[in-house]
């Protein structure tokens, strides 16, 4: 019996050692730039090509999951809900020749893109939704980006528990991809608060964490070094790859 206990505790110790080694390697800073070189290769080779599959109405997942931070609960967002988003304004600025602010009614008038696409979460699950909204590429033409604009940054109404604002970014190729959309409707109804009302991003050629919800304002920039953590997005600042095509 004693021997069994000894064997069992030795195995347990060895197994605990396993996690110690992999945890240590994971936190070993010199490895990080080497590991991140794979992201550069992924982006160079997979990049932003082709188009995501279009599904049929019967393929839609009715119970579209919510997997993000909580629905914003800041007074600014709550008052928007109270006004039924009639007070919503979307400023688009930064490196553009014609900065503008749009009302939801103006955005609705421009919403001509319908697509049923799959949303792939970084966690590994996926869901199909019918989206209606504006092609981001044609929308950006209205504000006339300057030649030096290389990224589009989307700021959200959402904040995490520490107060950090949620944000994300796309490069111009991703932004003008024909399927990249500022979405207003999900499955035939205006997007509800949990799913990113009133305006959210949908990028079917990228993982879901690039599809910023509850968009508050949009800015075109030449780089994102000086924005929050400097990695180009909330999840990127938390360690996820900026290139989310894989």
């Amino acid at each position: 019996m004693k021997r069994k206990v000894f064997v069992a505790s030795s195995i347990a110790a060895a197994l605990a050692g396993c996690a110690k080694i992999t945890n240590g390697l994971n936190e070993w800073q010199p490895a990080q730039p080497i590991l991140n070189s794979a992201e550069t290769l992924n982006q160079a080779i997979i990049g932003t090509r082709g188009t995501a599959r279009l599904y049929r109405p019967g393929d839609v997942t009715l119970d579209y999951p919510v997997n993000s931070l909580d629905t914003p609960h800041q007074p600014e967002y709550l008052s928007l809900i109270e006004s039924d988003f009639t007070t919503y304004r979307l400023p688009v600025g930064g490196l553009v020749d014609h900065p503008q602010t749009f009302t939801l009614r103006q955005l609705r008038a421009l919403a001509t893109l319908d697509q049923i696409t799959r949303h792939d979460c970084v966690e590994g699950w996926s869901v199909v939704g019918a989206w209606r909204g504006l092609s981001l590429g044609s929308f950006l033409k209205l504000v006339r980006p300057k030649p030096e604009a290389r990224y589009v940054v989307f700021y959200s109404y959402d904040h995490d528990q520490s107060g950090q604002q949620f944000y994300g970014s796309l490069n111009m190729a991703q932004a003008v991809h024909p399927q990249t959309m500022l979405a207003l409707d999900l499955n035939g109804k205006p997007i509800d608060a949990a799913h990113g009302a009133p305006v959210r991003l949908r990028v079917p050629t990228q993982l879901g964490y690039k599809s910023t919800k509850w968009i508050r304002n949009i800015a075109l920039v030449s780089n994102f070094k000086d924005i929050f953590g400097g990695q180009g997005g909330y999840w990127e600042d938390a360690g996820y790859a900026w290139y989310a095509g894989i």
Binding site: A19, N23, N26, S37, E39, W235, A241
Partner: peptide, 25 residues
């Protein structure tokens, strides 16, 4: 799966993806 068979041991999806894609290459 238990921590002794995952890389890293604790739950860290972003970290796991970095190792996975690098060693995929």
């Amino acid at each position: 799966f238990p921590g002794w068979i995952t890389f890293p041991g604790y739950q860290d999806l972003a970290g796991g993806r970095r190792w996975h894609f690098f060693f995929g290459w």
